[in-house]
Design a protein around this nucleic acid. Structure first.
Lengths: 136, 136
DNA sequence: CGTTAGGGTTAGGGTTCT
DNA sequence: TAGAACCCTAACCCTAAC
Protein backbone atom coordinates (compact mmCIF):
# COMPACT_ATOMS: atom_id res chain seq x y z
CA UNK A 1 0.00 0.00 0.00
CA UNK A 2 1.22 3.39 -0.84
CA UNK A 3 -0.71 5.06 1.87
CA UNK A 4 1.33 4.61 4.92
CA UNK A 5 -0.69 5.09 7.98
CA UNK A 6 0.79 7.04 10.80
CA UNK A 7 1.84 5.02 13.77
CA UNK A 8 1.33 6.20 17.28
CA UNK A 9 5.07 6.60 17.66
CA UNK A 10 5.21 8.85 14.68
CA UNK A 11 2.34 10.90 15.88
CA UNK A 12 3.87 11.20 19.31
CA UNK A 13 7.10 12.35 17.76
CA UNK A 14 5.24 14.89 15.73
CA UNK A 15 3.49 16.25 18.78
CA UNK A 16 6.71 16.40 20.70
CA UNK A 17 8.38 18.12 17.83
CA UNK A 18 5.67 20.69 17.71
CA UNK A 19 5.98 21.20 21.41
CA UNK A 20 9.63 21.91 20.93
CA UNK A 21 9.67 24.00 17.83
CA UNK A 22 6.17 25.19 17.34
CA UNK A 23 3.61 24.65 14.66
CA UNK A 24 4.98 25.16 11.23
CA UNK A 25 8.58 24.23 11.85
CA UNK A 26 8.29 20.92 10.12
CA UNK A 27 11.75 20.89 8.75
CA UNK A 28 13.24 21.62 12.10
CA UNK A 29 11.37 18.78 13.63
CA UNK A 30 12.68 16.44 11.02
CA UNK A 31 16.22 17.53 11.65
CA UNK A 32 16.03 16.91 15.33
CA UNK A 33 17.89 13.87 16.42
CA UNK A 34 15.12 12.89 18.75
CA UNK A 35 12.59 12.58 15.99
CA UNK A 36 14.55 12.02 12.85
CA UNK A 37 14.71 8.31 13.12
CA UNK A 38 11.10 7.89 14.03
CA UNK A 39 9.96 10.17 11.28
CA UNK A 40 12.50 9.09 8.75
CA UNK A 41 9.81 8.01 6.36
CA UNK A 42 8.00 11.30 6.55
CA UNK A 43 8.62 14.54 4.79
CA UNK A 44 8.05 17.97 6.18
CA UNK A 45 4.94 18.16 4.08
CA UNK A 46 3.76 14.90 5.54
CA UNK A 47 4.16 16.37 8.98
CA UNK A 48 2.16 19.39 8.03
CA UNK A 49 -0.57 17.27 6.49
CA UNK A 50 -0.74 15.02 9.49
CA UNK A 51 -1.02 17.93 11.82
CA UNK A 52 -3.82 19.26 9.72
CA UNK A 53 -5.62 15.97 9.89
CA UNK A 54 -5.17 15.79 13.61
CA UNK A 55 -6.66 19.17 14.00
CA UNK A 56 -9.75 18.62 12.03
CA UNK A 57 -12.50 20.08 14.01
CA UNK A 58 -15.44 22.32 13.50
CA UNK A 59 -15.03 23.59 9.97
CA UNK A 60 -18.50 22.57 9.17
CA UNK A 61 -20.58 22.02 12.24
CA UNK A 62 -23.62 20.28 11.10
CA UNK A 63 -25.20 21.07 7.85
CA UNK A 64 -23.11 23.09 5.63
CA UNK A 65 -24.23 22.55 2.20
CA UNK A 66 -23.98 18.92 1.56
CA UNK A 67 -24.08 19.48 -2.12
CA UNK A 68 -23.98 16.08 -3.66
CA UNK A 69 -22.67 17.02 -6.97
CA UNK A 70 -19.81 19.31 -6.73
CA UNK A 71 -16.76 18.75 -4.71
CA UNK A 72 -16.30 22.37 -4.28
CA UNK A 73 -14.61 23.54 -1.24
CA UNK A 74 -16.90 25.45 0.95
CA UNK A 75 -15.87 28.70 2.32
CA UNK A 76 -16.25 27.52 5.83
CA UNK A 77 -14.86 29.62 8.53
CA UNK A 78 -11.25 28.79 8.62
CA UNK A 79 -10.22 28.51 12.16
CA UNK A 80 -6.58 28.60 12.60
CA UNK A 81 -5.91 28.51 16.20
CA UNK A 82 -6.35 26.33 19.15
CA UNK A 83 -5.15 22.88 19.54
CA UNK A 84 -7.84 20.52 20.72
CA UNK A 85 -5.52 18.16 22.36
CA UNK A 86 -1.82 18.12 22.16
CA UNK A 87 -1.42 18.19 25.86
CA UNK A 88 0.27 14.91 26.01
CA UNK A 89 3.57 16.12 27.18
CA UNK A 90 2.84 19.54 28.27
CA UNK A 91 3.12 20.38 31.85
CA UNK A 92 1.86 23.86 32.10
CA UNK A 93 -0.98 24.96 30.06
CA UNK A 94 -1.03 28.26 28.42
CA UNK A 95 -4.00 30.33 27.73
CA UNK A 96 -5.16 29.74 24.32
CA UNK A 97 -6.92 32.64 23.01
CA UNK A 98 -6.44 33.75 19.54
CA UNK A 99 -2.76 33.91 19.82
CA UNK A 100 -2.31 32.56 16.43
CA UNK A 101 -1.13 29.04 16.57
CA UNK A 102 1.82 29.49 18.68
CA UNK A 103 2.77 26.40 20.46
CA UNK A 104 3.08 25.32 23.93
CA UNK A 105 6.03 27.28 24.96
CA UNK A 106 6.68 26.21 28.42
CA UNK A 107 7.53 22.62 28.34
CA UNK A 108 8.90 21.30 31.51
CA UNK A 109 10.93 18.55 30.15
CA UNK A 110 14.43 19.67 29.57
CA UNK A 111 14.50 17.54 26.55
CA UNK A 112 11.84 19.58 24.99
CA UNK A 113 12.98 22.92 25.92
CA UNK A 114 14.13 25.07 23.14
CA UNK A 115 13.66 28.62 22.41
CA UNK A 116 10.82 28.93 20.05
CA UNK A 117 12.35 30.22 16.90
CA UNK A 118 9.18 31.45 15.41
CA UNK A 119 7.23 34.47 16.28
CA UNK A 120 10.16 36.66 15.61
CA UNK A 121 8.82 38.03 12.45
CA UNK A 122 8.93 41.54 13.70
CA UNK A 123 12.56 41.84 12.93
CA UNK A 124 12.92 44.68 10.56
CA UNK A 125 13.39 43.17 7.25
CA UNK A 126 15.56 45.67 5.61
CA UNK A 127 14.52 44.58 2.23
CA UNK A 128 10.89 44.58 3.07
CA UNK A 129 9.21 47.82 2.59
CA UNK A 130 5.54 47.30 2.26
CA UNK A 131 3.72 47.96 5.43
CA UNK A 132 0.45 47.24 3.86
CA UNK A 133 -1.19 50.44 4.83
CA UNK A 134 -4.51 49.98 3.25
CA UNK A 135 -5.05 46.37 3.73
CA UNK A 136 -7.96 45.53 5.77
CA UNK B 1 -4.21 36.07 6.10
CA UNK B 2 -1.05 34.22 6.20
CA UNK B 3 -0.77 33.56 2.54
CA UNK B 4 -1.99 36.52 0.66
CA UNK B 5 -2.87 35.60 -2.83
CA UNK B 6 -2.05 38.02 -5.55
CA UNK B 7 -4.95 39.84 -7.06
CA UNK B 8 -5.20 40.55 -10.72
CA UNK B 9 -4.68 44.23 -10.02
CA UNK B 10 -1.47 43.53 -8.22
CA UNK B 11 -0.25 41.30 -10.95
CA UNK B 12 -1.12 43.87 -13.56
CA UNK B 13 0.77 46.47 -11.62
CA UNK B 14 3.75 44.20 -11.41
CA UNK B 15 3.71 43.59 -15.12
CA UNK B 16 3.37 47.25 -15.85
CA UNK B 17 6.19 48.00 -13.49
CA UNK B 18 8.42 45.51 -15.20
CA UNK B 19 7.54 47.05 -18.51
CA UNK B 20 8.62 50.36 -17.18
CA UNK B 21 11.74 49.48 -15.30
CA UNK B 22 12.70 46.06 -16.46
CA UNK B 23 12.99 42.74 -14.72
CA UNK B 24 14.84 42.94 -11.47
CA UNK B 25 14.09 46.47 -10.49
CA UNK B 26 11.67 45.51 -7.83
CA UNK B 27 12.47 48.32 -5.53
CA UNK B 28 12.02 50.85 -8.26
CA UNK B 29 8.64 49.48 -9.11
CA UNK B 30 7.57 49.79 -5.53
CA UNK B 31 8.61 53.39 -5.41
CA UNK B 32 6.64 54.34 -8.46
CA UNK B 33 3.56 56.32 -7.71
CA UNK B 34 1.57 54.36 -10.20
CA UNK B 35 2.13 51.09 -8.44
CA UNK B 36 2.95 51.97 -4.90
CA UNK B 37 -0.57 51.98 -3.65
CA UNK B 38 -1.60 48.84 -5.42
CA UNK B 39 1.45 47.00 -4.27
CA UNK B 40 1.60 48.51 -0.85
CA UNK B 41 1.26 45.12 0.74
CA UNK B 42 4.09 43.65 -1.23
CA UNK B 43 7.81 43.81 -0.71
CA UNK B 44 10.45 43.84 -3.35
CA UNK B 45 11.09 40.22 -2.58
CA UNK B 46 7.42 39.49 -3.03
CA UNK B 47 7.56 41.04 -6.46
CA UNK B 48 10.53 38.97 -7.37
CA UNK B 49 8.88 35.80 -6.16
CA UNK B 50 5.68 36.53 -7.96
CA UNK B 51 7.48 37.15 -11.18
CA UNK B 52 9.22 33.87 -10.78
CA UNK B 53 5.94 32.10 -10.24
CA UNK B 54 4.40 33.74 -13.23
CA UNK B 55 7.18 32.48 -15.38
CA UNK B 56 7.03 28.93 -14.38
CA UNK B 57 6.32 27.07 -17.49
CA UNK B 58 8.63 24.43 -18.70
CA UNK B 59 10.83 22.45 -16.50
CA UNK B 60 8.64 19.67 -17.51
CA UNK B 61 10.46 16.44 -17.26
CA UNK B 62 7.82 14.12 -18.50
CA UNK B 63 8.28 11.94 -15.53
CA UNK B 64 5.03 12.64 -13.96
CA UNK B 65 4.46 9.07 -13.30
CA UNK B 66 5.59 8.55 -9.83
CA UNK B 67 4.66 4.96 -9.82
CA UNK B 68 1.00 4.46 -9.82
CA UNK B 69 -2.07 6.50 -10.04
CA UNK B 70 -2.62 8.34 -13.19
CA UNK B 71 -3.22 11.77 -11.98
CA UNK B 72 -5.12 14.03 -14.14
CA UNK B 73 -4.46 17.43 -12.88
CA UNK B 74 -6.06 20.27 -14.66
CA UNK B 75 -3.17 22.19 -15.83
CA UNK B 76 -3.37 25.52 -17.43
CA UNK B 77 -6.73 26.19 -16.08
CA UNK B 78 -7.42 29.80 -16.84
CA UNK B 79 -8.72 30.60 -13.50
CA UNK B 80 -10.39 33.83 -12.95
CA UNK B 81 -8.81 35.36 -10.00
CA UNK B 82 -11.77 37.16 -8.74
CA UNK B 83 -10.94 37.64 -5.19
CA UNK B 84 -13.27 39.43 -2.89
CA UNK B 85 -10.94 42.20 -2.13
CA UNK B 86 -9.50 44.63 -4.53
CA UNK B 87 -11.54 45.27 -7.55
CA UNK B 88 -13.28 48.20 -8.98
CA UNK B 89 -11.64 51.48 -8.29
CA UNK B 90 -8.07 50.60 -8.20
CA UNK B 91 -7.17 49.93 -11.73
CA UNK B 92 -7.06 53.45 -12.90
CA UNK B 93 -3.37 53.46 -13.35
CA UNK B 94 -2.76 50.20 -15.01
CA UNK B 95 -4.62 47.96 -17.25
CA UNK B 96 -6.70 45.33 -15.76
CA UNK B 97 -5.57 42.53 -17.88
CA UNK B 98 -2.46 42.19 -19.81
CA UNK B 99 -0.97 45.55 -20.18
CA UNK B 100 -0.73 46.38 -23.79
CA UNK B 101 1.02 49.62 -23.78
CA UNK B 102 4.51 50.62 -23.03
CA UNK B 103 4.56 54.15 -21.79
CA UNK B 104 8.23 54.49 -21.98
CA UNK B 105 11.17 52.56 -23.09
CA UNK B 106 11.10 50.25 -25.96
CA UNK B 107 10.12 47.20 -24.18
CA UNK B 108 8.91 44.70 -26.60
CA UNK B 109 5.77 42.85 -26.05
CA UNK B 110 7.68 39.69 -25.58
CA UNK B 111 8.02 40.70 -22.04
CA UNK B 112 4.49 39.79 -21.41
CA UNK B 113 4.91 36.22 -22.20
CA UNK B 114 8.22 35.01 -21.18
CA UNK B 115 11.24 35.97 -19.31
CA UNK B 116 13.73 33.31 -19.93
CA UNK B 117 14.09 31.47 -16.72
CA UNK B 118 17.74 30.81 -16.39
CA UNK B 119 17.37 27.83 -14.32
CA UNK B 120 14.40 25.65 -14.35
CA UNK B 121 13.01 25.56 -10.96
CA UNK B 122 13.02 21.97 -10.17
CA UNK B 123 9.62 20.71 -9.60
CA UNK B 124 11.13 17.84 -7.82
CA UNK B 125 10.35 17.49 -4.24
CA UNK B 126 12.54 20.02 -2.68
CA UNK B 127 10.62 19.55 0.42
CA UNK B 128 11.31 15.93 0.84
CA UNK B 129 14.23 15.34 3.03
CA UNK B 130 14.92 11.71 2.93
CA UNK B 131 13.14 8.87 1.34
CA UNK B 132 12.65 6.70 4.27
CA UNK B 133 16.22 6.03 4.97
CA UNK B 134 17.04 3.42 7.46
CA UNK B 135 19.50 5.60 9.10
CA UNK B 136 21.43 3.72 11.60
C1' DC C 1 24.02 48.63 4.57
C1' DG C 2 20.22 47.90 0.85
C1' DT C 3 18.76 44.79 -2.88
C1' DT C 4 18.51 41.04 -5.71
C1' DA C 5 18.78 36.00 -7.19
C1' DG C 6 18.02 31.70 -6.20
C1' DG C 7 17.53 27.66 -3.25
C1' DG C 8 14.60 26.06 0.41
C1' DT C 9 10.17 25.74 3.24
C1' DT C 10 5.37 26.40 4.40
C1' DA C 11 0.17 26.90 3.81
C1' DG C 12 -3.59 25.64 1.69
C1' DG C 13 -6.31 23.77 -1.97
C1' DG C 14 -6.92 19.27 -4.45
C1' DT C 15 -6.76 14.44 -5.33
C1' DT C 16 -6.53 9.59 -4.32
C1' DC C 17 -7.17 5.82 -1.49
C1' DT C 18 -9.37 3.29 2.22
C1' DT D 1 -19.65 8.98 2.24
C1' DA D 2 -16.10 10.66 5.14
C1' DG D 3 -11.68 11.06 6.45
C1' DA D 4 -6.65 10.01 6.23
C1' DA D 5 -2.72 10.16 3.41
C1' DC D 6 -0.61 12.21 -0.33
C1' DC D 7 0.17 15.70 -4.30
C1' DC D 8 0.76 20.45 -6.38
C1' DT D 9 2.46 24.82 -6.10
C1' DA D 10 1.77 29.85 -5.00
C1' DA D 11 3.47 32.39 -1.49
C1' DC D 12 6.85 33.09 1.75
C1' DC D 13 11.71 32.65 4.10
C1' DC D 14 16.83 32.56 4.24
C1' DT D 15 20.99 34.29 2.78
C1' DA D 16 25.06 34.52 -0.33
C1' DA D 17 26.49 37.67 -3.51
C1' DC D 18 26.36 41.95 -5.52
Amino acid sequence: ARKQKWTSEEEAALRAGIARYGVGSWRLILKDDDFRSILSCRSNVDLKDKWRNINVFFTESGSMDKGRTAMKKNRATPRRNDHPMAKSTVASDVDDEIVDEQPIASVSSELWNVSIPKKSRSRAKQYHIGICQELE
